[in-house]
Design a protein around this nucleic acid. Structure first.
Lengths: 193, 193
DNA sequence: GTCTATATAAGGATAGAC
DNA sequence: GTCTATCCTTATATAGAC
């Protein structure tokens, strides 16, 4: 299953996590993937093509590990499930690091590049809604708009914490504690209203 | 007071807000500033020098508008002051846009560039502590660690919201509402404990 | 499909005149 | 201090053999 193109995409993901989207050099990618630059252009047309496919590839992987709860596992309590989903983004594994780094790059690039915005906005929306739905399981009486806002805040916070973690200013364990605290805070607010 | 070097730095700030740190071209900067590339190298040595000085310049400006409350203005209630400080970062003025964009670029660059991390960590820490202190005025009975955590969360959230705003996925008014809601949530949590 | 070799362009940086 | 002209390196991209 490790076809040549996925081999290149995996290398690209590693390299983007290491050097950033804008630090990706095609020749370096060729070396990392163990192929020639010519082959890369043959498969992906140009630099932009590499980037597009890699980000797509990364997005697919992220969905897999976000959704990836074994079918035979016992179902979690709503609050625990919410926590688990959010904390999945704060793990020190190569896969999560790569995905988070790539996501941060995508976000940062979109500030200056119109083209990336649409995908990003869609993915952001979906993610916020997922979290809002989970919050709704914990607090079934809370009004929908309040849940939606809390979902947006928790996901935005997670992006902020991820960036601080990846940029070296925040210890992972602390980031996870802060995330749990944010869940508490949002639930306290939903209850108080 | 508009010396040649500040003229160049102002142009650089504009350009970074438009193209990003990594999209900054020295020749484009020369055009934007209305000078020659030679002059830029004369003053700033090399591309890195331009970047360093520009980020410093931008940081100084940010402190001015964060601290910039007229001495004759009536003092605000603690909660209002907290809100004001946070919302200063979410305004649609060229200055705030430039500063936020530059800050986001700095953060994103630091993921891949060791050199920038130290400054960033220090500034982040100070900011979080300021917010924690303001929270302490609102909730004098809250324990210090809880205040510190809330300060970290609010500032991290603000970074996340800023990026969403700048990357086009989030309306400014909504970002401000979400910020107010986050303050409510944190205060609710501090009270509940 | 894959490689080697190379064309072409972009951007950073310097020299030297004024 | 400032400009013009130019060099040199780095990267993207293509051509053509296998």
């Amino acid at each position: 299953m490790a076809t040549r193109t996925t081999q290149i995409l995996e290398a690209a993901a590693r390299l983007i996590a290491r050097r950033g989207v804008r630090g990706l050099r095609v020749e370096e990618l060729a070396t990392e993937a163990g192929v020639s630059t010519g082959l890369i252009y043959y498969h992906f047309k140009d630099r932009t093509g590499i980037l597009r496919h890699t980000l797509e590839f990364i997005n697919d992987r992220a969905e897999r590990y976000t959704t990836g709860r074994a079918a035979d596992a016992e179902p979690l309590a709503p609050r625990a499930e919410l926590e688990e989903i959010l904390l999945l983004e704060l793990q020190d594994t190569p896969e999560v690091r790569e995905n988070s780094a790539a996501w941060g790059e995508l976000r940062a690039s979109a500030v200056f590049d119109q083209v990336l915005r649409e995908d990003l906005a869609r993915a952001t929306l979906v993610w916020g809604q997922e979290v809002a739905a989970l919050l709704g399981h914990v607090q079934p009486m809370a009004p929908a708009p309040a849940l939606a806002a809390a979902g947006e805040r928790l996901t935005a916070l997670l992006e902020g914490l991820s960036m601080r973690w990846l940029s070296g200013g925040l210890d992972l364990g602390h980031a996870r504690d802060l995330t749990r605290g944010a869940i508490d805070a949002e639930l306290a607010r939903l209850q108080g209203k």
